[in-house]
């Protein structure tokens, strides 16, 4: 899932300073699962904003609406009817959802209430760890299911570097060396040959905005393009 963390309260308050009627839109998918921007987090933020603005003698009306997914047009429809009742929108979705809302309502200022952080896994309630940088050219087959681009602090394709520190990365004793783990796993699987060969330079396909059109669905984009 996409993992986000809420922005510091002061920053959010600053973003919507001067607006007196703001709609806070939550997202019911990734950011709800990672406890950053679902229905409950919308309620908490709104309560905070309400109290803080009252203490400043400049009360604000904050609406709440959590949609299933902000990155999907059909779920944004319910916003159409109410958006004009508000001066601005706060979105607690990931950066993709925030942009999709902003794109739909170009007249309305849209502000982020979370910092989108990574694609990661759920290690425990409220505890998430990064696992993927969406580089567009997955090498997990070669590296025993451990991503060197994400998990190696230098993103090495031909690791490990000389900084391996008792099995940990040179950046921290709490960060395992990805290439140490890759070596161990491949050795146990008898597959060390898969990292014996030289891996050439990455094509870095993530340097431009990417579009994916799944095979058999070419028509939808063709229809939408004037």
């Amino acid at each position: 899932m996409i993992v986000a963390k809420r922005k510091p309260f002061e920053e959010i308050k600053g973003l919507i300073k001067g607006y007196n009627k703001v709609l806070n839109v939550g997202c019911g998918t990734c950011v709800a699962v990672c406890l950053a921007g679902g229905e409950k987090e919308v309620a908490v933020l709104n309560a905070e904003l309400d109290m803080a603005r009252k203490l400043e003698e400049s009360p604000i009306e904050v609406g709440a609406l959590t949609v299933e997914r902000q990155c999907d047009r059909e779920y944004l429809e319910p916003l159409d009817a109410i958006v004009n009742d508000y001066e601005a929108i706060l979105s607690m979705a990931c950066g993709a959802g925030i942009q999709f809302v902003a794109e739909r309502f170009p007249q309305t200022p849209v502000f982020p209430a979370v910092d989108t952080t990574f694609i990661g896994v759920n290690q425990g309630v409220g505890w998430y760890e990064e696992r993927c940088r969406s580089c567009s050219s997955c090498v997990l087959g070669m590296t025993g299911g451990i991503c060197p681009v994400t998990m190696c602090a230098k993103g090495l394709y031909n690791g490990p570097c000389g900084g391996t520190n008792k099995g940990n990365c040179e950046i921290s004793k709490d960060q395992p060396c990805a290439w140490y783990l890759i070596y161990e796993r491949l050795e146990k699987q008898g597959r060390l040959d898969s990292i014996m060969a030289f891996t050439p330079a990455s094509k870095w396909e993530n340097q431009v905005p990417r579009t994916v059109i799944q095979p058999g669905y070419e028509k939808s984009k063709a229809d939408a393009t004037p």
């Binding site: 510091p8 309260f9 002061e10 908490v44 905070e48 109290m51 803080a52 203490l55 400043e56």
Partner: peptide, 8 residues
């Protein structure tokens, strides 16, 4: 901590 953020 939320209350402290808010100013209470």
């Amino acid at each position: 901590s939320l209350l402290e953020e808010v100013g209470l």
